[in-house]
């Protein structure tokens, strides 16, 4: 019995730590949704794009950190292009058409990634520890723990940026009411570029971490799509929601797979997160931390 419990805790912890990976993507997602009201289906494609660009640049024989530095302007360029080519033409479109446009964007990004860098699996190594250590009787993966630390640093950085800088305040104002923000001089284009750029950086960090764990490969896109159930569970507009949602999704998919999945043939991670999210939504449609929106007639 004790053995079972210990095993349960190990599975739970590894699930939670995987969940942090989902949270990372979900955070970028929430940022974009809040500021530009776009449900960005291309988030996973952006992760893959960032990671592949990084690997591609380091392929010229550059240091990994320096390559990451060089990837940042690429993500800025992407944000700029998205703004002038898509966002500014879509002001006040229906949410569904925005969503469609981001599906198109994800195709463009995936195609570009493969066209430029090929579709092979690239290894990405930037010195995260890979050993395990033991707390009590439970094994904990050092890699996963460092990912949690990276996530914490990232979130802290975002909180400081949003709460304590002028630009951050403008972003929050746009998220509250974009027309009112414009009416007092906030430039929407600028805010959107900044938000998509920040989301791009989050994607880069996510891509690096995931690349180190699984290798940089096209399948990352599908895994990153799990950010969808995460944000749906957490509420579309809440960063704490994205984190808690990621943890719940990560833990539940691991537990289901380990304790029930084998009876169903395994590999249930592909759909369990979605079902968990939907079941949760049926109980609380606005998600864990989402604001209840009042529909206008």
């Amino acid at each position: 019995m004790f053995e079972d419990f210990q095993f349960f805790v190990e599975v739970l912890i590894s699930g939670l730590l995987t969940g942090i990976l989902y949270s990372l993507v979900a955070i970028g997602f929430v940022l974009i949704y809040k500021a530009s009201n776009v449900f960005n289906f291309a988030q996973g494609a952006m992760v893959l794009f960032a990671a592949t660009t990084l690997v591609g640049i380091s392929g010229f024989g550059l240091n990994i950190w320096f390559s990451a530095l060089l990837t940042i302007p690429v993500m800025a360029l992407l944000a700029y292009l998205v703004e002038i080519l898509i966002l500014r033409r879509m002001v006040n479109s229906t949410p569904i058409s925005m969503f469609m446009a981001t599906i198109g964007l994800s195709f463009v990004l995936l195609g570009l990634t493969q066209l430029i860098w090929g579709s092979g699996v690239h290894l990405l190594e930037f010195g995260l520890p890979s050993g395990q250590f033991i707390v009590g009787d439970v094994f904990i993966n050092q890699f996963d723990l460092s990912v949690a630390a990276i996530c914490a640093i990232l979130v802290a950085g975002l909180v400081i940026f949003f709460q304590h800088t002028k630009v951050g305040l403008s972003l929050r104002a746009v998220a509250e009411d974009h027309q009112a923000a414009v009416s007092v001089g906030v430039s929407l284009s600028k805010v959107w570029v900044i938000v998509w750029f920040i989301a791009g950086i989050v994607c880069l960090v996510t891509g690096m971490v995931w690349g180190a764990k699984l290798g940089v490969q096209p399948a990352l896109n599908l895994i990153a799509l799990k950010a969808l159930p995460v944000i749906v569970l957490g509420g579309l507009t809440s960063i704490p929601g994205a984190i808690v949602g990621g943890l719940i999704i990560g833990a539940s998919e691991k537990l289901f797979e380990v304790f029930l999945g084998s009876a169903f043939g395994g590999a249930t991670e592909s759909w369990v997160p979605y079902v968990v999210a939907i079941l949760f939504l049926l109980v609380k449609p606005s998600g864990l931390f989402g604001s209840t929106q009042i529909g206008r007639i």
Binding site: R89, G104, L105, F107
Partner: peptide, 19 residues
């Protein structure tokens, strides 16, 4: 590359039609 181009092409088309 042709299949990547095709993917890009469809992406652009969808964005164009939506916008």
């Amino acid at each position: 590359s042709v299949s990547s181009l095709e993917q890009i092409f469809f992406g652009v088309l969808v964005i164009y039609f939506v916008l």
